[in-house]
Amino acid sequence: MKVELVVDGKTLSLNVSSDKPLSELLREDVEIKSLSTSCTGRLCGKCIVLLNDKAALSCLVPAFNVKNATIVTFDGFSKTKECKDIENAYQSLGIEPCQDCYASRTLLIENILRRYEDTDFIDDIFSDEDILKEIMEEHELIKCYCMDSTSILAIIKESLNNRRKRNATVYRTKIS
């Protein structure tokens, strides 16, 4: 099956088996380095990519469902300013995911940031128990035990602040 898709900004046309998992496709046919694990659908949570701007476990997405899709892997995302927002939060808090889950964890955080970056009051998000529970459940999907929920929430809050500060600067520059 011929699949045309955009991976990390590059338009590709691949000839792959139609039911090939996206994770395998990215690893073998696109040579993405950040997908180092292969749980073959056992939900290890370490193959997260942004598929059409939303996080997805790439081992659960078949090739036929990514026709004309836009995919961002950590290989590409790590070079963006958005990634710096999160990495700066890691640095300032002195907490960092381990090498095993770094890529997936960072992309998952990005997914959450995109959901809430336009919210007016950050404190409202972090006082809403349902949202916090939802965020924590999402992170439990990644089967790596290097971080606790308190640290994850702190990173998200800090990253969200970084993102909003940067967005505000960009907005001001545009206005001026």
């Binding site: 998992p21 659908g41 036929f64």
Partner: peptide, 25 residues
Amino acid sequence: WAGGTYIMSRPDFYPSAATNVEIIN
């Protein structure tokens, strides 16, 4: 196939010579 999440999480889903000859998405 609806979402496909459950199908793809089965052991030995891919590659398989026997299954998924015709997929209706």
